[in-house]
Design a protein around this nucleic acid. Structure first.
Lengths: 247, 247
DNA sequence: TCAAAAATTGACGAAGCGTCAACAATAGAC
DNA sequence: GTCTATTGTTGACGCTTCGTCAATTTTTGA
């Protein structure tokens, strides 16, 4: 009995030293996914682990830190996917479309990450968290931005894109980012899009993104090239989903 | 003493019957504006009014209902402003720009409304509220959509715009909506945009909106017409701000 | 004037966050 | 192997907030 108990305790300890932090985050992720921000509950995290609340607070100063840690994981994952897309072959505008495909795959494969990022932006979580973690977040945002901006620069340098003097590559990325982010938020949080007349938000987003880049005269124009097919190809090759998902 | 007390009570009663609901909302608005979602506190609302908590719960079933009521006010206000913009004179694309100006003015003049709408979308408030209020919200969304869609239809019918067969007017509106919403969220919730290279998000949004509509070949193109000036004019004439605000 | 109906109150239960004094396990010295 | 210092763990507790409800006050209208 004592031996049994001791062995169990030791094995638990081993596990904990390696995995506890990510275990906390896994559980938190699940809770947020099933019940949103208000479903995230410190006591329940403790209950779902084999640990008490106090121990959780040794890893994270408060609830918001957990949320920000999750958001950070989300950004890391997005950066990985964006980088893979940016490294794909093709002309710059094709690679930008690949980024779009990455963003789409990100939403489909990690919906909890998307939710968490939304939360961090709307509920005032920011000011309750530690400066270190905030800095980490900003850093990720900058890296993500840099990846996409460099594609726009490539477009300019190969002569596919010529921006007017008052528009910077960063502005273009801001446009893509805005449309993607806004479109995804609306698509995932408006329950009556179909009633409004938007049966296929994913498709509409593609059309609008094409129009945006066509508006900047980025060659080849969407009339000269089948970007939809490219997006499909990239998604299947770089970001294969577990199950194919209708849009 | 008794008379004094009775008179006060009666006057309070008069006020209450007319104003109580909007008084609750006013206070709630202020709390959200200063301290976000978590700053909204039923006990403090009660304290700031001359009433007790129980009375507030006679007007609103729960906290979320207050939030949704505020969101509803926001939408009503936005519809008013959108309608004014839609009724302005000019060619259809100019009127669409006027809608953009309205959205901008809305954000500047009613920041709390913007915050509330964001909250309703991200924190899972929806399922805790009454079906009636939810229906009201959907209705507003549809009306708002209809206003803008009719401008796009006007553009088509006067021959300024010719959409490809796979794109509907609703899709175009979805694009404008996405970009505006996404851009505004990013601009108001990213504290390090300047570090990222976006010094003037408002200006960038204009450029991107121009590119989007240019991409659909909506005449007159942004190269043929000064839409920025139009936006400025509309904002000043239709939506004069209390104090002129830098972007 | 008075009883029935309606409005108002705030104490209360429930639930959640974060703390901390007490307890347990481990490491290291001898 | 034993003992002490350090480090880790626990859950009861204080505090805050939501939403309820029995008791009380006010209003209505007969």
């Amino acid at each position: 009995m004592v031996t049994e108990s001791r062995r169990e305790t030791e094995s638990r300890r081993e596990r904990e030293i390696r995995q506890r932090e990510s275990q906390i985050l896994d559980i938190a992720r699940g809770q947020i996914l099933t019940a949103g921000y208000l479903g995230l509950n410190m006591d329940r995290i403790a209950a779902e682990m084999e640990y008490s609340k106090g121990t959780i607070y040794q890893h994270f100063r408060n609830k918001e830190e957990i949320l920000l840690a999750l958001a950070n994981d989300a950004q890391q994952q997005r950066i990985r996917m964006f980088q893979a897309a940016a490294d794909s072959s093709g002309r710059p505008r094709e690679r930008l479309c690949a980024i779009g495909a990455a963003a789409e795959a990100f939403l489909e494969q990690y919906p909890h990450f998307f939710m968490v990022e939304q939360l961090v932006r709307s509920v005032s979580i920011w000011e309750k968290t530690s400066p270190e973690r905030r800095k980490l977040m900003r850093n990720c945002e900058q890296r993500c931005m840099a990846i996409v901006v460099s594609i726009v620069r490539d477009g300019i340098s190969v002569g596919d894109l010529a921006l007017p003097p008052e528009v910077t590559p960063e502005d273009v990325v801001f446009g893509c980012w805005s449309m993607n982010w806004g479109g995804m938020i609306i698509a995932t949080t408006s329950d009556s899009l179909a009633d409004i007349g938007i049966a296929h938000p994913g498709l509409a987003l593609h059309h609008n993104m094409s129009a945006l880049l066509d508006g900047y005269h980025w060659r080849p124009l969407s009339t000269e090239h089948d970007y939809a097919a490219h997006v499909q190809r990239v998604k299947q090759e770089l970001f294969p989903a577990l199950e194919p998902q209708a849009n």
